[in-house]
Design a protein around this nucleic acid. Structure first.
Length: 472
DNA sequence: AATTAATTTGT
DNA sequence: CAAATTAAT
């Protein structure tokens, strides 16, 4: 007798544990097929370089978890799934939902098409609350984080409790596309460098979560601001790819004993910000490209490729900015504090369009996430709803002094400044020539002069943003 | 999730 | 005169 087969389509849920679609199938089918489709045809935007690297090794890991039985395709999902359903005579297919506009559009069509042949089901595998569940009393979406989170999310039904089941993956001999055939890897040297401090895969994400909850989450509400402290989870890439579910994190942190109230609430609210980003992208899908506040559409951004290039390379001459940008390039990640500093610098001091920064982050970040990335850039630029006010312009010198007081973060990523006394580490241009001579550091040669005057560019940003406010 | 300058308070 | 508070951006 033929075995009953259900297909699970892996997307941004590269895990076995707490996977609603897999759990569902395992209750109804003796055997499950796991399939991943690399869809470059519909993707918009296409995956960034760092994301491809992460995906490559994540798929290899997942394939091992499935005893080699992960089926990998490259191409149009409709055709790939057709072939698979036909070959295995599968009875049902299911997946966990994604919320990127291009995926919603693709999946909607696909669902209608597949429904003609077999049962199709989708589940919530990556959000604590789905966007349509949280609405104001007048049925319109929230636009401000605090009411969204407190009145919306926290007073709604509790998130699904994580659950892991034994999944029987079908042992097959279907033709296999090698993961290497997906051509996800391009630049070995850079890839080895950025991967060197990461361990990709579901089990690593669980270990990282557990060890963060044992140590780093203590004093989270304070310590999370300091890029040199171990008080951030660094779970964002795993969360993006679904190697850990937000539900697992939510309930795990809730179960901790001896965690200060503030640390718990602030940590959870960061998951809340992730929810808010997905929420905004769902309800306002154009925020990936266009200002959420349309009065910014005529804003006088400066198209300055030379400054942008220096920013992206970490050669602005402002140490904390360069440290952040180099952390990004070298590790595929940037701590949240420098993320805010470098983006404020690009958007306000340089007056370069947030979209250019968003695209650079998209290409370089392991945790590149359409929702969080666009929402965060618009937050910094002031073009989003509930974003930072136009006059909040980070001073990268005082930010450095406050949040990297020992200078360790700067010295780590901008080693040419390692001998600079702490007094001038945040503003080398103020360092007396005598000291520069002593440590053999030539500004303009070993390290650049600042590409903009902080005071002047701050004034320029204020007046440019002020104009916009007048014209409203 | 900020900065700066002006102003008041504290020792 | 430094530190804290406040107003304005």
């Amino acid at each position: 007798m033929k075995k009953k087969i259900g297909i699970h389509w892996f997307r941004n849920d590269l895990r076995i544990n707490d996977n609603p679609s897999l759990n569902y199938l395992s209750r109804n089918y003796d055997n499950i097929l796991g399939v991943f489709i690399f869809d470059e045809i519909n993707a918009n935007p296409k995956l960034g370089s760092a994301s491809k690297v992460w995906l490559n090794y994540s798929l290899e890991y997942l394939k091992k978890q499935l005893n080699g039985n992960l089926i990998v395709f490259k191409g149009e999902p409709k055709e790939c799934l057709d072939e698979l359903i036909h070959f295995f005579d599968a009875r049902e297919i299911s997946w966990n939902r994604c919320y990127e506009p291009w995926i919603i559009k693709r999946d909607k069509k696909l669902k209608i098409y597949l429904n003609e042949k077999i049962k199709v089901n989708s589940f919530n595998g990556s959000l604590l609350w789905e966007p349509w569940e949280i609405l104001k009393n007048d049925k319109t979406p929230y636009k401000v984080f605090t009411p969204f989170y407190k009145r919306g999310c926290l007073s709604a039904a509790n998130p699904r409790i994580p659950k892991s089941e034994k999944i029987n993956f079908f042992d097959h001999n279907f033709r296999v596309t090698n993961i290497s055939d997906l051509d996800l890897l391009e630049n070995k040297m850079w890839e080895n460098e950025i991967l060197s401090q990461w361990r990709v895969g579901e089990d690593s994400s669980n270990e990282i979560m557990k060890s963060f909850f044992q140590n780093g989450v203590q004093n989270y509400s304070e310590g999370r601001n300091f890029p040199n402290k171990k008080n951030v989870s660094r779970l964002s890439p795993y969360l993006h790819w679904g190697q850990v579910s937000p539900n697992s994190i939510w309930y795990e942190v809730n179960s901790l004993k001896n965690l200060k109230h503030d640390d718990l609430e602030v940590f959870k609210s960061e998951l809340g910000w992730r929810e808010f980003a997905y929420y905004l992208l769902y309800h306002f899908p154009y925020i990936q490209r266009k200002n959420l506040k349309s009065n910014f559409d005529n804003f006088q951004w400066i198209d300055d490729s030379s400054s942008f290039k220096k920013w992206s390379q970490g050669l602005t001459g402002i140490p904390i900015v360069d440290a952040g940008m180099r952390e990004l390039w070298q590790t595929g990640y940037m701590h949240n504090r420098p993320r805010m500093i470098v983006s404020s610098f690009l958007v306000k001091n340089l007056l370069i369009h947030w979209k250019r920064g968003e695209e650079w982050f998209w290409d370089c970040l392991f945790d590149a996430d359409a929702a969080s990335n666009s929402a965060s850039w618009q937050w910094v630029a002031g073009t989003g709803t509930d974003s930072t006010p136009y006059f909040r312009i980070f001073n990268p010198v005082t930010q450095g002094q406050k949040f990297d007081p020992t200078g360790e973060y700067i010295r780590k990523y901008v080693p040419e400044l390692k001998n600079l006394p702490i007094k001038f580490l945040f503003s080398p241009w103020e360092c007396p020539n005598e000291i520069l001579k002593n440590i053999n550091l030539k500004l303009g040669k070993d390290y650049p002069h600042p590409i903009v005057d902080l005071k002047e560019s701050r004034q320029r940003a204020l007046s440019t943003y002020e104009q916009l406010r007048m014209n409203k």
